[in-house]
């Protein structure tokens, strides 16, 4: 199979995984835990792509995931985009300065990103929406903590999935020189 096709398949797998995680969060979580705020499962993938992928790939994933989020929420696409892109910039800046591979770093950054997401969402809502977002301190706190905790355990799974479907670069053909 062609390398470009493999890359598309890899992208599509994560695109659908985002869909699955959003559905899980909105449907299954509330069936089991009722009104308890759910962890932001799909945001873990967002952070993973932001930290682990090349710039163009992470930007592409960032936009597509924002689009998917908007399908599962009443939140305006603009506010979501502004909030997530701000987060993406943070990830971009951080990974270019401090980076070490592993679950601990990933968990730390997910926690920071999740906190920033909530703060930025409220700030953006206050600035651009006629009715700004309610404070909901316990819901937000629970979401930040639970997402951070889940990030630690899901990192190896995402990494393995990523490696499993990672397209291999075609190896160069080495010819022998005669004479």
């Amino acid at each position: 199979m062609k390398f470009s096709r493999l890359r598309i398949i890899h992208g599509l797998i994560f695109f659908f995984l985002t869909y699955i995680l959003c559905s899980f969060q909105t449907v299954v979580w509330f069936q089991i835990f009722g009104s308890l705020a759910s962890p932001f499962f799909c945001f873990i993938l967002f952070v993973y792509f932001g930290l682990d992928k090349e710039d163009w790939k992470s930007v592409l994933y960032c936009y597509s995931s924002i689009f998917i989020y908007s399908l599962f929420s009443y939140a305006s696409l603009g506010i979501l985009m502004l909030t997530c892109l701000f987060n993406y910039i943070l990830l971009y800046v951080v990974k270019n300065r401090v980076y070490w591979p592993g679950a601990a770093y990933f968990t730390l950054i997910t926690g920071v990103s999740m906190t920033l997401f909530n703060v930025m969402y409220m700030v953006n809502s206050y600035l651009f929406e006629p009715h700004f977002s309610p404070f909901l301190i316990w819901d937000r706190l629970f979401q930040i903590l639970s997402t951070t905790l889940i990030a630690f355990y899901s990192y190896p799974v995402i990494k393995r999935l990523d490696i499993l479907f990672k397209p291999e670069m075609p190896s160069e053909v080495h010819g022998e020189l005669n004479g």
Binding site: T26, V27, W29, F30, C42, S73, A75, S133, L136
Partner: peptide, 14 residues
């Protein structure tokens, strides 16, 4: 009712 909103800021159901 089959689902809730993705973000806790909004009160919507599906």
């Amino acid at each position: 009712v089959i689902a809730r909103d993705l973000i806790p800021d909004h009160s919507t159901i599906t």
